[in-house]
Design a protein around this nucleic acid. Structure first.
Lengths: 343, 343
DNA sequence: TTGTAGGCGTTATCAA
DNA sequence: TTGATAACGCCTACAA
């Protein structure tokens, strides 16, 4: 196909490549007429500049990448839209880069930063247990959105926007307790999970304790490996098992809305009602938690505000107004139809 | 930061750049020992090759891109996973590229093909009304997944994998009719939509006609602009309006499962029951249509098989075993709890 | 098995 | 306002 290059265009127009380059990139020092002529030829010949060459040469690029682990997670949908809007508003361009489950997001980030000459990075999702050393390789400003690093990192090592998963989890379990529930099952992440799964579980534990209740190991259910984590299917299978074991409980708390919905399905299939027989609570505040029947009691994370704040912090970093910043948002307990007081 | 380059590594190792390049790219003609030594230095210095430079120089790359319009559409989730798996199995690398709503996917494809030296492209989602001329610019093999081109294109111009939206839509509406429903509302795309929205509407029309029923314009509801198309929210708002208008109907068919769920919510909020008061049917076969209460009667598109076939065709194209190919899959009518016979 | 040198397509520098 | 020309970082003939 012999792709057409800037040289070809220059030749066709009888000008130098520099002039063509100027036309393409809206440089000031160029005669409007020659520019128009060049643009016309470019259009006619469907010339498209080669991005690799551009990135190679360019030092600055005004682009920001959002790295996202688990792109199919509906929780990220709204965030993505806001990131895009906010970044475009600032006249930067926006790249959405998927990170595979097993991939190391920092490595991907470093590589992409080089390739695309990034100005900033947002990390969305993922566990984020990395070596300090590797993190130092990443010389581009970045913000963790809806998560934080593990303990070993100093707060001054990074920036983040998140909710306090421990506290919010405590909040909703506390609410269940206040309804009179004493046997509250939980569907949570494996104990090896050091991030949100662990924090939400700790919140559950503490809430029970503060109501003088003991954690019953038989009611602590771990999501299945090999099945998408935090998914409806996972919640469904775990709850089904729980019901089959005939453990006694009156409420079930799933650490994600998706799992809560799976739990509901399992309960319905067992011929039981919600909330009459079992109360069900979730976490996240997905749209579907409202549309589901019954609507699901949950903790809503203020995704929109969080996404906006993420970008705000990122640009403060870029413009060197700050060196790091951590913002913690409050979740909102949405009391809906899937929970009721124990009579 | 003065990023480290292949030359630096070469110097540090006391070898030429060629040797380093060979080490990186697993070339055969290199002494194992020197290779090990080089790799060690690379590790220690955290050297990462610059992708832009690589892409610029390379002519072949063994990478395939999946372009997706509406990345937040849950319908695509499974397809993406399968694309990734199949492509990796063939030792190609996989790029997922989001296309913005207003962007022209062909243009994005052409540009990306240049930048990344793509071997093949999959288009997922989007409307696909383009000029022939532009399409010819795209010299890389491509397949449309879950959609087809508009009439003006010859079948020999492209390849595709899809269901027959008209026929499947007919199937489910025919089923509703066979249950005795005569007043069946539909929530569909604006008539300006020339792709699946139109086809599914045509199927609805034909099914009614074949049962001797007339299309009642008052029951043909168009999804709202400005709100995400085919979404739960859209189905919810449209149905709410429909109910407020007090139009008489006994069943409602939404051309996507998400809209069907929104419709259910509106019906429940109006204090009505499903399927006793209204039957509800969807389209797509999303997971949530199973988990919803009641489970939603729908047409399941065989996403997995379709995704596999997409890749199969794409590789046949790449290996020049074919010049074009169109595969049409049959949908499956899933009869569930959201529909019942009219007594 | 290794190294030298040229070129991929673009942008930036500098002189005209 | 323009145009040669030198990078950008890498790969690959070709030569050694």
């Amino acid at each position: 196909m012999a792709a057409i290059t800037i040289k070809d265009i220059a030749k066709m127009c009888g000008v130098g490549v520099t002039t063509v380059s100027r036309a393409i990139n809206n440089h000031p020092d160029i005669n409007e007429k020659t520019k128009a002529r060049i643009m016309k030829v470019i259009k006619e010949n469907h010339y498209i500049p080669n991005n690799s060459a551009r990135n190679l040469k360019r030092s600055n690029s005004k682009t920001i990448a959002v790295l996202i682990k688990g792109i199919t997670n509906p929780f990220f949908n709204k965030s993505i839209k806001i990131f895009e809007k906010e970044i475009k508003d600032k006249k930067y361009s926006f790249i959405l880069q998927r990170v595979e489950e097993k991939q190391d997001e920092i490595e991907v980030a470093i590589e992409l930063a080089k390739e695309k000459r990034l100005r900033g990075i947002v990390f969305l999702g993922g566990a984020f247990s990395h070596s300090k050393e590797k993190l130092q390789q990443l010389t581009v400003p970045f913000v963790l959105s809806t998560m934080r690093m593990t303990q070993e990192f100093d707060l001054s090592d990074y920036s983040s926007v998140s909710v306090d998963d421990f506290r919010e989890s405590y909040k909703i379990v506390d609410y269940l307790c206040s309804l009179g529930h004493e046997k509250i099952a939980i569907i949570t992440a494996p104990m090896s999970d050091v991030s949100i799964g662990k924090l939400r579980y700790e919140g559950y534990k503490r809430a029970l304790e503060s109501h003088g209740l003991k954690v019953d190991d038989a009611l602590v259910r771990i999501m299945k490996e090999g099945i998408e984590s935090y998914s409806m299917e996972n919640g469904y299978l775990v709850t089904k098992e729980l019901l089959e074991f005939n453990e006694e409980f009156t409420a079930i708390y799933a650490v994600s809305d998706s799992m809560a919905i799976g739990a509901c399905k399992a309960i319905f299939e067992a011929g039981k009602r919600i909330p009459e027989d079992y109360s069900v609570a979730g976490f996240d505040g997905l749209d579907i938690s409202f549309y589901y029947q019954p609507s699901i009691t949950t903790i809503r994370q203020p995704v929109e505000e969080m996404a906006e704040e993420t970008i705000k912090i990122l640009f403060d970093l870029i413009n060197e107004k700050e060196t790091y910043s951590h913002k913690i948002f409050s979740g909102e307990l949405l009391i809906r139809d899937s929970t009721k007081a124990l009579n």
